[in-house]
Amino acid sequence: MSVPALQTRDLSIGYPRRRKGDICLARALNLRLEPGSLVGLLGPNGVGKSTLLRTLAAMRAPLAGQVLLDGEDARRMRPGDLAKTLSLVLTNTPHPDLMTGYELVALGRLPHSDWLGRLTGSDREIISWALDAVNAGELACQILTELSDGQRQKLMIARALAQETAIMLLDEPTAFLDLPRRVEVMRLLKRLAHQTGRAILVSTHDLDQALRNCDQLWLMREGAMLVGAPEDLVLDGGITETFHTDGISFDEGSSAFAVERSAGAAIHVKGSGARETWMRRALERNGYRYDPAAGVAAISLGQNGQGPEWHLTIEERLSRHHSVAEVLATLKDAGI
């Protein structure tokens, strides 16, 4: 067995209350975060992901149990030592006036510097390395207020890297980012974990990216924590159960959330490739049911001189359409 970078022992997290009794979000957690691995923390809103991260980062006291960093109780560590072991990236990206990207990343060296926070030659080397590691070299001389959220988040990650900690915790770092930026950040974290041997825990709502990049997932739901490889958690239904809500469920086949089938009119679709997929999505969106055999209407993909077209058959009457919208409109007009 390897030495975990972070380990919890019978950890209970939540909020202490004076009179009414504590609010406990999760109890008896025995988690291990291994060096060189990227772990995704997933769970519905309000289940306590942030509280768990803050407890792991020793920013709040556990209700019971311990957080061990390299075998040492996190709550007993001095702030300076803690900052050399564990770094943090949060959802919001602060952007103080007049600060450059370089100065932001240089703040990561604070735990290692003297009382004035002066940078030595090796500090500068580490800062340049961190900037390069997140592909943000060209942001070094720019003012933070002139950057986008995604660029600032990359710099915040570089800052955490420059802090040179064995453990990095990230609380929804991609929440405000667009899809390409989210993909970029998650891939970056995976690369950093594997290449630098850091133990990285990232909480996210982006299930798809977590499934694609994480070595392990921690699925948090009320009263329990499921831990395992992403694929195992999909196959044994862990993800389906965790995220199940009325009307919405995780489809293990397509690896996406789907609105549960309604009892609408059954329609048969024949075709292939992207066109068929999107036609079925359109029907699903409008409350129709897909019928593999037959239905009150049948849609098939045909060809005419200009290109592909849809053939819609309702009660043996055939009509031809150029777009999905036309097909939907015709179905509606026919009272289906």
Binding site: S2, S128, E164, Q195
Partner: peptide
Amino acid sequence: SQLVHKSPRASSAIV
């Protein structure tokens, strides 16, 4: 698994 993360030299692969 030792902690091999430290120092930019140890992780120069990225650079």
